[in-house]
Amino acid sequence: MDALKSAGRALIRSPSLAKQSWGGGGRHRKLPENWTDTRETLLEGMLFSLKYLGMTLVEQPKGEELSAAAIKRIVATAKASGKKLQKVTLKVSPRGIILTDNLTNQLIENVSIYRISYCTADKMHDKVFAYIAQSQHNQSLECHAFLCTKRKMAQAVTLTVAQAFKVAFEFWQVSKEEKEKRDKASQEGGDVLGARQDCTPPLKSLVATGNLLDLEETAKAPLSTVSANTTNMDEVPRPQALSGSSVVWELDDGLDEAFSRLAQSRTNPQVLDTGLTAQDMHYAQCLSPVDWDKPDSSGTEQDDLFSF
């Protein structure tokens, strides 16, 4: 819950932080000083300027060897085509990944977070970031790969997607708890209302004896509580940590079903599988986004697919 609360507080303090972009060759504004600060901008989305290598189908939802083989196929196909790589912007948030063309600003792909089953910074092609997700059109699994400016960037994108998945799962947990509370309150309110109706004398007997209905007592009954809980029953509950912020979080049926399955089948359902080692994760978390744009010590960066 700490990640969720800190993310909400950060967004309320400075929503404009989320509009910064990394990996864009110096076009961005001043960047936060450390990885923790940038992680807090996830709610509205972190932007990464990358190059799209392509996509291939895979048979399993996750796995280092599986993704490595898929990336190898994608890279080989991209090299064989001889075409310049498409420059894209990857927007990562707890909602998922939005992929747009840098030149036309046209939407290429919009992947809900619950469809993503794996992401990684490839070991062999260490400047490549990739994720595996279920197609929104059918049940097939797709591996999408992107060329980053350097290994640090690939690791940073991988960690960002993993963190977005974690925050999304926490949102789901909060929403589920809130819905259970509202359902319980609604049920209790309905029981109270039913009890009051059972003990209320029939209207005919009131008229016969000349008694008047006590409207004041009726007004004191917990009807307002019942209506408050039943009027918006169809509205999706939102985490309290975000009250007053500009973010509107809505959970669709697909996300609810997917996270429910994860909660039942996995020990740590909030953790998205990645190909990063503990050492890689520690190294990337210690980086400032400013470091992502620094040239690798191995030599001059080449803006070309064939540089790796």
Score class of each variant (00 low, 15 high):
158 T>Y: 05
144 H>G: 00
158 T>G: 13
179 K>C: 12
124 M>H: 05
92 V>M: 09
103 L>F: 12
168 A>Y: 03
252 D>I: 05
292 W>G: 06
107 L>M: 15
238 R>F: 07
156 A>T: 04
168 A>I: 12
116 I>N: 00
97 I>P: 01
134 Q>M: 13
277 T>I: 06
24 G>K: 10
255 L>T: 10
263 A>H: 03
48 F>M: 12
23 G>E: 11
273 D>R: 06
82 G>T: 01
40 E>I: 02
225 T>F: 03
166 K>H: 11
52 Y>L: 05
278 A>M: 09
215 L>M: 08
305 L>M: 09
239 P>M: 06
70 A>K: 01
159 L>M: 13
172 W>E: 03
26 G>L: 08
63 G>A: 15
232 N>G: 14
137 H>D: 07
37 D>K: 08
228 A>R: 14
303 D>H: 06
51 K>I: 02
174 V>C: 04
202 P>G: 14
273 D>L: 05
181 K>V: 07
24 G>F: 10
87 K>Y: 14
253 D>F: 02
51 K>M: 01
144 H>Q: 10
40 E>T: 13
94 P>A: 12
103 L>K: 03
267 T>S: 07
10 A>W: 01
242 L>K: 13
303 D>M: 07
63 G>K: 01
175 S>D: 15
29 R>N: 11
100 T>F: 05
209 T>N: 09
172 W>S: 02
193 L>H: 03
147 L>F: 00
36 T>V: 15
273 D>A: 11
67 S>W: 01
146 F>W: 13
160 T>G: 13
128 V>T: 01
56 T>V: 07
79 K>F: 06
72 K>D: 06
273 D>K: 03
103 L>S: 07
191 D>I: 02
304 D>Q: 06
245 S>P: 01
93 S>T: 11
285 Q>N: 09
284 A>E: 07
107 L>E: 02
224 S>T: 11
119 C>A: 02
133 A>D: 09
61 P>L: 11
229 N>M: 10
107 L>R: 15
205 S>G: 09
62 K>G: 03
301 E>Y: 12
109 E>Q: 05
143 C>T: 02
176 K>Y: 04
74 I>P: 01
108 I>K: 07
205 S>P: 11
79 K>H: 09
268 N>R: 02
197 Q>E: 12
38 T>F: 11
69 A>D: 10
194 G>Q: 03
9 R>M: 04
175 S>K: 03
51 K>E: 01
231 T>Q: 09
110 N>K: 08
208 A>T: 02
17 L>A: 15
134 Q>N: 13
118 Y>P: 01
268 N>W: 03
304 D>N: 08
30 K>M: 15
197 Q>F: 04
205 S>Q: 07
75 V>E: 00
199 C>V: 03
50 L>A: 08
165 F>I: 02
89 T>S: 10
146 F>D: 00
96 G>H: 12
200 T>F: 02
234 D>C: 03
215 L>Q: 06
45 G>Y: 10
120 T>G: 02
204 K>D: 05
2 D>K: 01
230 T>C: 05
63 G>C: 11
181 K>N: 15
134 Q>R: 15
133 A>M: 01
206 L>K: 07
152 K>Q: 15
93 S>G: 08
241 A>I: 09
57 L>F: 12
5 K>S: 11
132 I>L: 03
223 L>S: 03
202 P>Y: 03
49 S>Q: 09
90 L>H: 00
106 Q>V: 14
284 A>S: 07
227 S>N: 11
193 L>P: 01
66 L>Y: 12
262 L>Q: 02
267 T>Y: 11
247 V>D: 15
120 T>Y: 03
274 T>N: 04
157 V>M: 01
61 P>N: 14
47 L>K: 01
156 A>P: 00
22 W>A: 01
78 A>L: 05
247 V>F: 15
85 L>R: 00
236 V>R: 14
128 V>A: 00
177 E>P: 15
193 L>W: 04
107 L>Y: 10
179 K>E: 11
115 R>S: 10
77 T>H: 08
117 S>A: 14
82 G>K: 00
142 E>Q: 11
214 D>R: 12
260 S>V: 04
107 L>W: 05
198 D>V: 05
5 K>P: 04
10 A>T: 15
212 L>K: 10
89 T>Y: 09
131 Y>A: 01
282 H>P: 03
277 T>E: 10
65 E>W: 06
299 G>T: 14
110 N>Y: 03
26 G>K: 10
212 L>G: 15
186 S>Y: 01
283 Y>N: 08
49 S>V: 12
180 E>I: 04
170 E>W: 05
40 E>A: 10
113 I>A: 03
60 Q>W: 04
269 P>A: 04
230 T>G: 04
243 S>F: 09
199 C>S: 12
157 V>A: 05
298 S>G: 12
90 L>W: 00
106 Q>K: 11
170 E>F: 08
201 P>I: 02
208 A>E: 07
